[in-house]
Each structure stands twice: as C-alpha cells, then as structure tokens.
Design a protein around this nucleic acid. Structure first.
Lengths: 188, 188
DNA sequence: AACTTAGTATACAGAACTGTATACTTTGTA
DNA sequence: TACAAAGTATACAGTTCTGTATACTAAGTT
C-alpha cells in the first residue's frame, strides 16, 4: 500500500470528523494531504469509495485496539465484559478520539438504500454481536439483550463526548454498564 | 403565522430526516412544498435559519407532547420518571417518528462554533435537565447522573431505531432505564 | 538508454447549490 | 376603484463540487 493512499485516508478521516462528510470536498482533502486530485482518484474510484474505506479502516483500527487490550489484560473470557467499558473509556478519553464513524455516517446518509448507510448499519450490528459474544462467554442468559443495552450506552456516550468533550458521559455510561452487567449476571 | 411557512417547515423537517440536511437543497424543499424560492426566502433569511427553526419546532413539539402525556397520565411528580420511557417508547413506535433532530444536526455540523451545532448542543442539554428535574422530584440523590445515563439510553435508542426500525432498541432501553431508576431510588 | 511507475500541475466540463432581481397575478381591504 | 400584501414564474449571478483530460517530471528498473 502506498504512503500517499494512507495519508489521504488519514486526512479524510480527520476532516470528515471535524467538518462533516458532505461538507468536506475532495479539493480540501488533497490540499491538506499535500497531493492532487489525480492521485486521489487513482486510489479511490469515487468519493463514496473513499468514505467507505475511511469507515472500514476506522472501525478496524478501533476493533483491533480493543481486541488487543482485552486479550492482553484479561485472560479469563468470562471476565472480559467486566472490563469492556474500562477500555472504551480509555479510548474515548484519549486525544486520538474524534468520534464514532458509523454513527455520524448513518446520520449524514439516512437513506437505507445508500451504500454508506448500509455499511454503517453493518458495523453497528457487528459491534453489537461482538459485545454479545463477550456476554455469552460470561454465561449471561439474554446476551443479545444486554449487548444491545451496552451498545446504546456506548453509542450515546461516544456521541455525547464528541458533542461536548469532558461532559462526563463516558464515566456515567461506565457506571450504568456495571449495573446492567451485574444485574444480568445474577439472573438464574 | 402563514400556512405556507408552516408547510415549508413541515416539508423541510421530513426531507432533512429522510435525505439528510446538507443533501437537501432549497429547490427540492420548495418543489415538494408546492411553492417557490422567493416565498421561502421571504420567511427564512437563509437556509441556516430554516434549519434552526426546523430544529426548534421539532424539539418544541416533542417536549409539548411529552409534557402533556406526563401531566395528564401521571399525577404524582415522584412517579413521573417511572413512566418516562413508556411515553418515549410510544413516541418512537409511532408512525410519525423520524428521528431526533439535534442528534443528526450535531453530526452534520460538528464544528462547535457553528450556530446549528450550538443549538443542537443546547437542546441535548435542556432535555437532560428536564430528566434531571423528574429525578429530583422522585427524591433521587444523584439526579444529574441518572439523567445523563437515561439521556444516553434515549439518544442511543432513538438513533438505533432510526437506523433500523423495529430493532427492539427502545424496548431494551426501557428495561435498562427501569433497572437504573430502581437502583438510583434505593440509594440512601 | 529505453521503459515503466508514481506523482504533479492545471485546466475544465457539467452539475448542483444558495441567494437575488424582475415582472406578473391574485386577493383582500380602505 | 385604488392600493397593498402574498405569492408566482423565471432567469441568472456566483460559487462549489465531483470527476476527467492533457501534458509534464522524477525515479527506479531492465
């Protein structure tokens, strides 16, 4: 993979989050990335394709980071869900945090037939399934139900923290998650 | 207030939600509303002003509907927070539900200096304060904390339901809300 | 030395978008 | 009947946006 392609992806990710996707033109992206439109369109057929790759890379990076944290710091599978929001908090509070791509993308592309909307929807579903697996490993009965609840807290907190940094949203989301997880574990 | 102004506001609200704000041109709005740009710009100085009035009206309508439900169906102030998510569920499941304006607007206008972003941020804060008052009336100690948690569930569920209707998000948000409220009430 | 690959520079076609200017029509009112 | 208010019809100025065409440069490879 070319250095310039990576640079374009990096710059586009940042601009999409700070200015919005539809409000960011390819001219701005290439200017900030220090290249030209010809090069951008060599790597990405359309702006839509660029948006899709930005979303995929963002989610992959987050998921990889989270997997690594969970597998290296928490050995027992049943304990992993207990620490999920610790790592989410760490991620949200890090200076690198700029928001959750699929949340914003689904707001900017609400049409369900749109390829970007479909991808956002898929990523949201996949993340929920990931949490559900953690819940299943912890012997939680209604794993899907708890996963849905935790994903609501996650998405809500990410949105709130990005709307106003230091709002304390993630701290209270973590507390709520603990209550919900403890409650789900005590079920027969 | 003119009938046409109302019609424009109604059409714009719908189009903004179904196609996105930035993706909806004023030409489309006037075409669907059955009028002309001259009339639109007679009532709204700029497109930004139209967006702002759409957001204000949407939030006002929701808040009025909710106030009415709470005051007519639940007499004791201490019980109101118990039924909050019943009405939110009713609202989300109604055919009129098309999403929460300030969530989408803050995603499309992420710049904190932007007037639309500022309004979205204010509306989110005001709704949280409204929940906090219900929590205070119910003699809950950390009313602000609970209000923040419930608002995360609300915003997460509204987002999820609008991403995919019938996802069950609101049903599980309601269950989670009940657990959090009951837990908060039992605090000394 | 000839060739390929990656990238630059620049201009531009074509569409879409916001906002305005101008002239006309309809309708209620003094 | 004269006038004012509300709205229509239409054209267009000016900008911005995506995507492409053309010609050039630089560097490594065979």
């Amino acid at each position: 993979m070319s250095l310039l392609k990576d640079k374009i992806l990096l710059v586009a990710t940042d601009l999409f989050h700070t200015r919005g996707i539809n409000s960011t033109g390819v001219d701005t992206i290439v200017a900030v990335a220090g290249t030209t439109k010809m090069t951008l369109y060599k790597y990405f057929n359309t702006k839509e394709q660029l948006i899709i790759e930005v979303l995929q890379k963002s989610q992959q990076d987050f998921q990889s980071w989270l997997d690594e944290k969970l597998s290296s710091n928490t050995k027992k599978p049943a304990d992993k869900i207990q620490h999920l929001f610790d790592y989410i908090e760490e991620w949200v509070n890090s200076s690198a945090f700029i928001g959750v791509g699929f949340i914003k993308a689904s707001a900017e592309f609400p049409n369900e037939e749109n390829a970007i909307h479909k991808l956002s929807s898929l990523q949201s579903r996949e993340f929920r399934q990931f949490i559900s697996k953690l819940a299943t490993d912890a012997n939680i009965k209604d794993a899907d139900g708890l996963a849905l609840q935790l994903s609501l807290l996650f998405e809500g907190a990410a949105q709130a923290e990005q709307m106003k940094r230091g709002s304390g949203a993630i701290k209270y989301a973590k507390k709520a998650a603990k209550i919900l997880i403890d409650g789900a574990i005590k079920q027969p």
